[in-house]
């Protein structure tokens, strides 16, 4: 019998370890994500595999883009430093699994907010940081200037795992046009195949088309058609079940948009502390206890504005100045003819 004592004890020990692990996960309930993030010292953020203007890494591995800035804002609020973010590039297919399985804590990857995604698969959308719509790109020399010129037999390149495939079908079906979908797993291959002439048109969100056009051999040979065939509100996503974390991400984004509305920028944020407007004072942490509800200090929003900037600065830096979409269109503040409107921080 003694022969097995050693094996038995190790077995019992392993089982014991398993059980303590289980009970621990059950006990830690209230904003586990915030606690873990502060313990780790960085925000785990899921981004795209390279979409200029939204999330794109340069040769040195520095990430930039409006989606990236949302994660940076959360890092500034929670950890005090906008650079304490670990970015995980994800394909469209992997993104939700990475989030629900806990590999990342924020998914900020030009993801469309839809009912089924919000309700079905254990995700919560916290807001919209870019209003987009699906469009078509064609070669200029084809002479096509409108989707009404599409004919039976057209082939359309796109990538899988997105709402694009569904919108495309709805669009062609409603027009009664027969088409060939050519769906790739990654955006780079879609661009390469369309560029080579495999497809007559390339369809995805218009912002994506504008960004990917810059990657073509001759960007000037291609144009985006004026029609928009769907609503694509893009925004950051968190796991369902941690409402505190959800609120932190939501209000980090809202802070950036509201700061633009009140003219608070990274340059003047400190001086705004002495503003006469109580709304502005709340935005820079000089009045009220705006961070307490999240378990954060009072200057969480000031740090976001100082380190990342307001939404307008982020848009200009990433999307307008890079020549992707100089015109803000619907992504302008509601006070300036756009539809960006966020609830007040108070």
């Amino acid at each position: 019998m003694f022969k097995y004592v050693k094996q038995l004890t190790s077995l019992v020990a392993m089982i014991a370890v398993l059980f303590t692990f289980t009970t621990e996960t059950m006990a830690a309930k209230k904003s586990k994500t915030l606690k873990n993030t502060q313990k780790k010292g960085f925000v785990r953020c899921g981004v795209s595999q390279g979409l200029p203007g939204f999330s794109n890494a340069d040769a040195a591995g520095n990430w930039t883009g409006v989606d990236v800035d949302v994660c940076r804002a959360v890092a500034a609020a929670v950890l005090g430093d906008a650079n304490k973010v670990k970015f995980t590039p994800l394909s469209a297919k992997e993104r939700f699994t990475a989030l629900t399985s806990g590999e990342i804590d924020i998914l900020s990857r030009n993801t469309t907010w839809t009912l089924s995604r919000d309700a079905d698969i254990g995700l919560t959308f916290v807001g919209v940081n870019f209003y987009d719509g699906q469009g078509f790109m064609v070669r200029k020399d084809s002479g096509i200037t409108s989707t009404s010129q599409f004919k039976d037999g057209i082939s359309a390149c796109t990538n899988i795992g997105t709402t694009t495939e569904l919108n495309m079908r709805d669009f062609f079906n409603s027009k009664g046009i027969s088409y060939t979908p050519v769906a790739f797993e990654k955006a780079d291959e879609v661009v390469a195949a369309y560029d080579a002439g495999r497809c007559d048109t390339y369809t995805t969100d218009k912002s994506g088309l504008a960004a990917q056009r810059t990657k073509m051999t001759n960007p000037d040979d291609h144009m985006v058609l004026p029609e928009t065939i769907s609503k694509e509100p893009l925004g950051p996503v968190v796991r369902q079940g941690d409402s505190v974390w959800e609120d932190i991400v939501r209000w980090s984004l809202n802070t950036m948009i509201e700061a633009e509305e009140y003219g608070v920028t990274s340059a003047n944020a400190d001086s705004m502390k002495t503003s006469d407007n109580p709304q502005i004072k709340r935005l820079v942490g000089a009045e009220g206890e705006m961070g307490a509800a999240f378990g954060l200090d009072n200057e969480w929003n000031l740090r976001i504005i100082k380190q990342v900037g307001n939404y307008g600065e982020s848009y200009k830096r990433n999307i307008a100045d890079t020549g992707i979409l100089p015109d803000r269109g619907p992504n302008e503040l509601w006070t300036k003819g756009g539809i960006l409107y966020v609830p007040p921080s108070r």
Binding site: K93, I121, I160
Partner: peptide, 24 residues
């Protein structure tokens, strides 16, 4: 096949269908 858009089991089912339903 998924890499070059040939609609095999992985691309169609473990790709698009998984994304649309979220049933990983």
């Amino acid at each position: 096949a998924a890499a070059i858009a040939y609609p095999d089991l992985v691309l169609v089912f473990a790709g698009t269908a998984m994304m649309q339903t979220g049933r990983a």
